[in-house]
Write a protein that binds this DNA or RNA. Structure first.
Lengths: 260, 260
DNA sequence: CGGTCCCTTGATATTCATCAATATCAGTGG
DNA sequence: CCACTGATATTGATGAATATCAAGGGACCG
């Protein structure tokens, strides 16, 4: 999509790539000087783009690095005791995965790409050393992890309290917002994950997700075409996601002609 | 319960309390020398015990400190958009709360005690400074945050995939394990939270929780008496929590005499 | 001892999962 | 380019799990 398909090993480009990366304020927002970015840059390994459905790491893998998404998208998931997968999150450019593995040296989740995806591997031992040498980097790391905890908490609320409608609306709003922050359109985008993945993530059956897309389209909230989504009424969608519950359900019912 | 009700301001006791705290290997497990513990100790404020239902911080409060539980227990929760509370976690001695507030300077959740509770306040600015001076402390902080992310992920699986039975069994197992790690009995303990809190946390109605306690007791898994729980069959409970789903449900059904 | 909150239990309603049957799409190879 | 194939998505009919509603019983606090 926005892939500048990389020439084989262009050293000049690779050097100091963080400085030029359009995402550097997402993965390293604040207070890191140019010199320090250079030092960070030297420990980061830019990997050639991964194909769709490639694994970045698997549950149980030894923990060595965290990874920043540069382009594309990724899902992370764990295994339930019965072998099914539970998707933990969808990650977009500028976001960092693998942070859950630090504490015990092995990845407690797997990560695989949802489309062609470029990532930066950041060897954690070196990152820790650098964090000692560059205090602001250490603070930034802690801040990023804090944000991850916080966003997990939001997801808990979604799964614990929200209806199916609210869940899907929340996901769409989240994607919309995050894509916008990355310079894409907030109103029109491509869903890189399957309906199955969406259902899994939201704790819903595929069929429910499918029906919701249909219903949302019928009441004029969105236009869906396979993986392409256009949000027609952002405010209303936000309203549903934010869960003015009674009102939203009523609206949807009336429009579908459902009656009880 | 296990409260050594503290004399008013015993300076000798307070000084270097971390070294003597039976929890110090829980909140600061590894690689911190005695000198360093002393330095950490100096920035920590030990607060007088809080009464049941006291707030430690509230959603929106400015972020200044994280808090370690010394004795008692705490729940943290956020507000859903409709004003209801969603409980994020129950915290036991040696665990740390407030980590979700680091990234934007304000608490995104509230915390209140479930019973008489003692906490240590750790001013975060000073902790960060100390983390720079003592690299192993910084690493430890990152590790603790990683564990928090990981345990949130487990909860996501619980809410996304598990049945009501599995959820309650999982909670009981989690409490059992954590209490055991703190030197208490794994098989017999006191639930400091209300049925309401349990239901809220697990994404279930109070009534469902109540019925589950009854059913678990009927099939000989546990004995419940108000807030007192004794686990009679730890292995079976673990089995249900781990979700050998079909088998567990069948067992419970047969025993309750339910038939379809 | 009375009030209030919390918990339990039963009856009913609702949401969403499951099952089943197409329909559509993305590759693949002829 | 088209037909074939498996994966993915939609749609409908049914059922199960759990929420909700309603009422009564205990426990705890003053």
């Amino acid at each position: 999509m926005n892939d500048c398909s990389p020439k084989p090993l262009d050293l000049a480009m690779l050097r100091l790539a963080c400085q030029n990366c359009s995402l550097h304020e997402l993965c390293l927002p604040v207070g890191i000087g140019l010199d320090d970015v250079g030092r960070l840059d030297q420990i980061i390994k830019r990997k050639r783009p991964l194909a769709r459905a490639d694994h970045i790491f698997r549950l149980g893998d030894e923990f060595r690095s965290v990874y920043a998404i540069r382009a594309g998208s990724v899902k992370t998931y764990t295994m339930t005791e019965t072998g099914g997968e539970q998707i933990i999150g969808f990650y977009l450019p500028g976001e960092i995965i693998g942070l859950d593995a630090i504490h015990n040296g092995a990845h407690p989740s797997s990560a695989r790409t949802l489309e062609t995806t470029s990532i930066c591997e950041i060897p954690f031992a070196q990152l820790e050393d650098l964090a000692v040498a560059i205090p602001s980097l250490g603070r930034q790391l802690v801040r990023i992890m804090s944000r991850e905890i916080h966003s997990d908490d939001d997801l808990l609320t979604l799964l614990g309290k929200k209806s199916a409608e609210e869940r899907l609306a929340s996901l769409l709003m989240s994607l919309s917002l995050r894509l916008q922050q990355r310079g894409f359109s907030a109103r029109e985008f491509h869903l890189s994950m399957s309906r199955n993945d969406i259902g899994n993530y939201l704790g819903l059956a595929v069929e429910t997700v499918s029906r919701l897309f249909t219903r949302f389209q019928q009441i004029g909230l969105i236009t869906v075409n396979n993986k392409h989504v256009r949000i027609e009424d952002l405010a209303a969608l936000r309203e549903i996601a934010g869960a003015n519950r009674g009102a939203a359900c009523t609206a949807a019912r009336a429009a579908t002609g459902a009656s009880h």
